[in-house]
Each structure stands twice: as C-alpha cells, then as structure tokens.
Amino acid sequence: MAFKVGDKHEAVVIENVVRTHIVKYAGASGDFNPLHHDDTAAKGLAGYPSVFAHGMLSMGLTGRMVTDWLGKGNLKKYGVRFTKQVWPGDTLTAKGEVTNVADAGNGKQLVTVKLVTVNQAGESVVEGEAVAEV
C-alpha cells in the first residue's frame, strides 16, 4: 500500500478509562507511582481530584493506532508531548495524518505522520510524530 501526504487515519483507542486499565498498565510497565493508582495519595500528596493515567499509557494506546495503520515492526521514530492528563471516564481517539513521504532507498517508503490524541471533549492529551519504513 502506497502512502501519500494528506492520508489520514483515526481510531478510538480506549473507551471509558477505568482504574483497572490504569492499574494494568502500572503492573505491565512497572511504574507504580501512587498518583496513578492511589486516590488518597493523588488527592492528599499532590492535590489532584483523583488518580490519572500514566502519560505512557496514552502514548502506548496512540502507538497501537500507528502500528495498526502503518504496520508492525517498521517504526523508525516515535515521539510525543503529553499535553493534558487522562482521567477515569475519558475516551481517547488517536488521529494521524501523513505529512511527508520519502524514498527509503530499498523499494520502501519512509512515511512521516503527525499525531494527536484527543479526549471526549476534543482536547489533545498527546501530540507527536512517528516515522515508519513501509
């Protein structure tokens, strides 16, 4: 499949975040920062209204959209900024748009995509870019 500048793809990557999603990511990643699983600590220690998801959960979920779209095992670069926290109850949609296509020199395309993942209010939670050899 040939990609061209302007091609777009989007996917709902998680619907209705619950604490179990966050806890499962904590266990898998090893990041047991209490802010992500202990409401008492999140409220008392840091003044947040509740626990919130790891930024890396949002990045991982966004990465799933990218690899579903551009293919598994062919990423060259993937980077994001975390722009807003993700809270229990949120639903995230990851969106990508091809911004550059170059010749990889081996019969493949080097495809650059701009990424933004938004919550149910349309606010971006992750913004970034990925490059894949497709």
């Binding site: 990041d31 209490p34 802010l35 220690l45 840091a46 890396m56 670069k77 993937y78 900024r81």
Partner: peptide
C-alpha cells in the same frame, strides 16, 4: 523522565528504533 512522585510529571517521550 518517568514522572516522579508528587509534583513530577512526564512531559515528553521520544524513541528511535535502530534494530528489532
């Protein structure tokens, strides 16, 4: 970069993939 306890947050994360 993983965030930190209390006031720490993760701001950005970037990967370069060189080999599977």
């Amino acid at each position: 970069g993983g965030g930190g306890l209390g006031r720490g947050l993760h701001a950005e994360q970037h990967y370069e993939y060189h080999h599977p």
